[in-house]
Computed example of a mutant assay.
Amino acid sequence: MVARRRKRAARDPEKGLLSPPGYSAIPIKFSEKQQASHHLYVREHRVRGGTKSSWPQKRTLFVLNVPPYCTEECLSRLLSPCGAIQSVQLQEKPDLAESPQEPKSKFFDPKPVPGFRVAYVAFQKPGGLAAALALKGPLLVSTESHPVKSGVHKWIRDYTDSVPDPEALRVDVDTFMETYDKKMAEEEAKAKEEEGVPDEEGWVKVTRRGRRPVLPRTEAASLRVLEREKQKRARKELLNFYAWQHRETKMEHLAQLRKKFEEDKQRIELMRAQRKFRPY
């Protein structure tokens, strides 16, 4: 058990702290007034052989434990002394597929809850990566020349940023709808090509194209549907379940037959009385 714990976390002899295996720790502070340090865990970003990656090899730094107040601009400023930076991207979790992600819209995609994130920092030269791995610290996030807003000032900024610009929103909506229309047109064209063509096993794909459009129900149609459902429920009811119900049903049926027989007799007598031709 002790050996496993030692394998999971290795102690940095120079900095006197625990870090995950294969990572180096870089202490940072929010400002000079802060006494306790927060640590970023960094290593070179590697992928398996034969796997494509959107990040350049030998020049990308993978960063763990990035605090919420550290933005992409702050991270770029902290690591800029190591070398020229090509790009910085913060994410909620690492890329498992090692493939480039599609850009997300700030209007249509929900805003993630701020928390600790991971970062990918791509340097322009391999020397920047080596310098970042050997970086000591502590590094200051908020300085006099580059202050980072916090508290009420941060809330005011977040509220201001939450109000969208009408022109930017219109452009984003138009772009989203153009992409959606293009995608639907491609799917419809693909469905037309595949319709009626049997696959390898001889099955033919059936699509919804060509069906009559469903019209909204009128009030009369809704009433007819309700009446049919009412009749259906009435038929499902248990009739003549008990013996006394069966006897009463028989008695009612016999009474109706007798009544109809008497009415027929009276009708026949009336017809005989009204008959004028008397041969005898």
Rank of each mutant, 00 (worst) to 15 (best):
M1N: 08
V2Y: 14
R5G: 15
R6W: 13
R6Y: 14
K7W: 05
A9C: 10
A10S: 10
R11T: 13
R11L: 13
A25P: 02
F30Q: 01
Q35K: 12
S37I: 03
H38A: 04
Y41V: 00
V42P: 01
V42L: 06
R43V: 01
V47E: 04
G49M: 07
G49P: 02
K52N: 09
C70L: 06
C70T: 02
T71M: 02
E72R: 03
R77E: 08
L79G: 00
L79V: 00
C82N: 01
I85G: 04
I85V: 13
S87F: 00
V88T: 06
D95N: 10
Q101E: 10
S105T: 07
P112Q: 05
V118F: 00
V118D: 00
Y120L: 06
P126D: 03
G128S: 07
L129A: 02
G137L: 05
V141K: 00
S142N: 03
V152E: 10
I156E: 11
T160S: 12
T160P: 00
S162M: 09
A168L: 15
V171D: 09
D172S: 13
E178Q: 12
T179E: 15
Y180D: 10
E186K: 13
E187S: 10
V206K: 11
R211T: 09
R212T: 08
V214E: 11
L215G: 03
E219I: 03
A220D: 15
L223Y: 08
R224Y: 04
L226Q: 11
L226Y: 02
E227G: 09
L239Q: 14
F241W: 13
F241C: 10
H246V: 14
E248M: 09
T249S: 14
E252A: 15
E252G: 09
L254A: 09
A255M: 12
A255L: 11
Q256W: 01
K259N: 12
K260C: 04
Q266M: 12
Q266V: 07
R267C: 07
M271P: 01
M271A: 14
R272G: 07
Q274Y: 12
